[in-house]
């Protein structure tokens, strides 16, 4: 499994640089990944999204959908697209140290 140095820490990643061990995640790593995704600064909204994704993933074993982030997490979908442009779920999950949203193939 490939390793990569992010924010000065060597972490396990997959071929698309998603963390494969979420226990290696920390806030500095999130900030560094966000920069790579074109998000210069993580604001309160970004952190609210990251916290919800991590909490929900822990509980359910899967990433929430954009609908669930709205209904269960109170996260506005329009804002989600504004702050995580071009595929908010795949970007936010990467920053949160979680897997990419997937199908079975």
């Amino acid at each position: 499994m490939p390793k990569k140095e992010i924010a000065g820490v060597s972490v396990d990643v997959n071929e698309e640089d998603y963390l494969t061990d979420s226990s290696q995640w920390n806030r500095e790593i999130a900030i560094a990944i966000a920069k790579g995704e074109g998000i210069a600064i993580l604001n309160d909204f970004h952190w609210q999204v990251i916290d919800f994704l991590q909490k929900d993933f822990e509980e359910k074993g899967t990433l929430p959908t954009i609908r669930r982030m709205n209904k269960a997490g109170g996260i506005s979908t329009k804002e989600l697209y504004e702050y995580f442009p071009d595929g908010p779920l795949k970007k936010a999950s990467k920053i949160a140290g979680l897997p990419k949203p997937q199908s079975c193939v």
């Binding site: 997959n14 698309e16 071009d86 595929g87 949203p101 997937q102 199908s103 079975c104 193939v105």
Partner: peptide, 28 residues
């Protein structure tokens, strides 16, 4: 999702099908 196939192995083995069959793809 971010692709027709979201798992690397499926994408590697099956990704050519869309191109061969001239199917346009819109993701995300």
């Amino acid at each position: 999702l971010s692709g027709a196939f979201t798992k690397q192995i499926c994408s590697d083995v099956l990704g050519h099908l869309l191109v061969e069959k001239n199917i346009n793809l819109v993701t995300d």
